[in-house]
Structures are given as C-alpha cells and as structure tokens.
C-alpha cells in the first residue's frame, strides 16, 4: 500500500505551481513593458506579481499546516521562502519608489530562486531535536528578509549599470530614477539587509549556544555569513571614506549578492558543516 500523502501537501503543490506560473507571467509582462514601453503593461505585471505573492504566501501557509511547523527547515523550504522574501521586498521598493523597471529586473531573479526550490526534494521530514526551537522562526525569517533586501540591492546595482549605458534613452530617463536616487535606494536596501543579516547572525548565535553549546563554531555557514557581513560593511565604509558611490557601489552590490548566494547554495554544496540541512 502506498504512503498516504497529506491532502494539505497536495494543495501546496498546486499553489506552488500556480505561483511559479504567475511569476513567469509577471516576468513576461515586465519584459513586454520594457520592449513596448507601455505603462499599462507594467501595472499588469506588478499586479500579477502581487497575486503571485499572495498565492505564494498561501502555499507556504499550507506547507506549514501540513508540516505542523514553520516551513523553513530544508533547502526546498528555505529556497521558496527566499523567493517569497525577494518578491515581497521588491514589491515594497517598487511601490515605495514607484519604478516598475525594478520589478522587470527582480522577477527573473525570483524565478531563478523559485526554480532552484522546484528542483529540491519537497518531502516533509520530522525535525531533528536541535531544530525544534522557537529560535528557528526568528532566525530564518530574518535571513529571508536580509537575503531579499540584498537581492533587491543586486537588482538595483544591475539597473544602475545599465542606466549608464542607456543615458540617451527617453524611456529609461522617464521610467528609471536618476542615478543619484538609484544609488541611494540601493544603499537603503543594503542597510535593511545588513540590519537583518546582523539580526540573523545574533539570533543564530543565541540558538547555537542552546543547541550545540557554542554560540560560534566557525562552521562554513557561519563563516560565510560573516564574510557576507564584512563585504557589506566594507561597502558602507568605502561609501563614506572614499565616496564609493554610483558605479563602484553598484558593482559592490553585485559582488555582495554573489557572497549571499554562495553562503546559501555554495556552502551547502561544497562545504558541509553543522548547517548541512539548511
């Protein structure tokens, strides 16, 4: 007799598929907006993205109900939550600063991250004793916001670099904020990310002390979180000390996000340690 599948998990599977389709549709509309230069398409795209975020949230809730815990404990759950965080932060920045081109650049990244999630095993396993902690929710959810913010700063960095090449384009000049403003928005998303990354590291240290008897073990995940933190700290100091703004800051935001991705995927793939399940 086959294993009985939790019906909530079936609902989650359907919602996850709809989420992916909505994000793909949003990307297509954003692309058309860039190509056809019609604002209406951007509005449709951001609405579809918002709908995708709502369905995505429902999928996460269903998984949480099916698992009987927060869905933040394995590669699949963290990847889909990472995509959710990226979608949320990009929509917040998009609405706050009113520039849909951000969505056009953020949505392919969201698709890449959620695509990575789709490749992971969706099996729900019981948690090992060390993961049965109330710190799990705080630690991982702050990491999602941090990664989402760094993802947005990466996207803004790319837009900044492209904007330089598109100086003569009337569409870019009217639909993308000035370079100074882009730089400042990128800086703000780095600030948000760094605050949440610090929070992630501190809550992680408190949790590690309770679970493993040591708040810092130089585990590869911890070490690479520190590397990421240091890279963004260097970025902030260089902004102040040497006036590294604009192009240099944009390149730094891209490098910083590469560190984030390595901390998340690279460490799990190449440097196993205490966080091997994450």
């Amino acid at each position: 007799m086959g294993k009985r599948v939790n019906p909530m998990l079936n609902v989650e599977n359907v919602l996850f598929t709809i989420t992916v389709l909505l994000y793909v549709a949003a990307t297509v509309f954003y692309f058309l907006f860039i190509v056809l230069k019609q604002d209406r398409l951007a509005r449709i795209a951001s609405l579809i993205q918002l709908l995708g975020l709502v369905v995505h949230t429902a999928a996460l809730v269903c998984r949480g109900i099916a698992a009987g815990r927060l869905p933040l404990t394995n590669q699949y759950e963290f990847s889909t939550s990472f995509a959710w965080g990226l979608s949320l932060v990009s929509l917040i920045f998009l609405r706050r600063f009113k520039f849909p081109v951000l969505g056009a650049f953020a949505s392919p990244v969201i698709i890449l991250v959620i695509g990575y999630a789709a490749l992971q095993s969706r099996e729900i396993r019981e948690l090992m004793p060390s993961l049965r902690s109330s710190w799990l929710g705080i630690h991982v959810s702050t990491a999602i916001i941090a990664y989402g913010s760094f993802g947005v700063s990466f996207v803004l960095g790319l837009i900044f670099l492209l904007r330089e090449k598109m100086q003569g384009s009337a569409f870019w000049n009217s639909h993308v904020p000035s370079r100074e403003k882009l730089d400042l928005i990128g800086y703000r998303s780095v600030c948000l990310g760094l605050l949440f990354l610090s929070f992630t590291m501190i809550t992680g240290a408190i949790w590690a002390e309770q679970a493993w008897g040591s708040y810092w073990s130089w585990d590869p995940k911890e070490t690479w979180s520190l590397v990421t933190w240091l890279v963004y700290a260097i970025y902030l100091h260089l902004r102040i000390r040497r006036g590294w703004k604009g192009r240099a800051a944009a390149i730094f935001a891209v490098i910083g996000f590469i560190c984030v991705i390595f901390t998340y995927i690279g460490v799990n793939t190449f440097l196993p340690g205490l966080h091997s399940y994450a």
Partner: peptide
C-alpha cells in the same frame, strides 16, 4: 578608517581561506 577597511578586507579573506581549507 582606511586602516579599518584594510583590516576588514584581511579578515574577510582570512575567513574565506579558513572555510575553503578543511580545518
């Protein structure tokens, strides 16, 4: 701050080396 930045760079590189070479 210049020296501080230098130290942060050295620290970051040290962490990279320490994570890539099994300890």
């Amino acid at each position: 701050m210049r020296f501080g930045i230098l130290l942060l760079v050295v620290l970051a590189l040290t962490c990279v080396v320490g994570s890539l070479i099994s300890q």
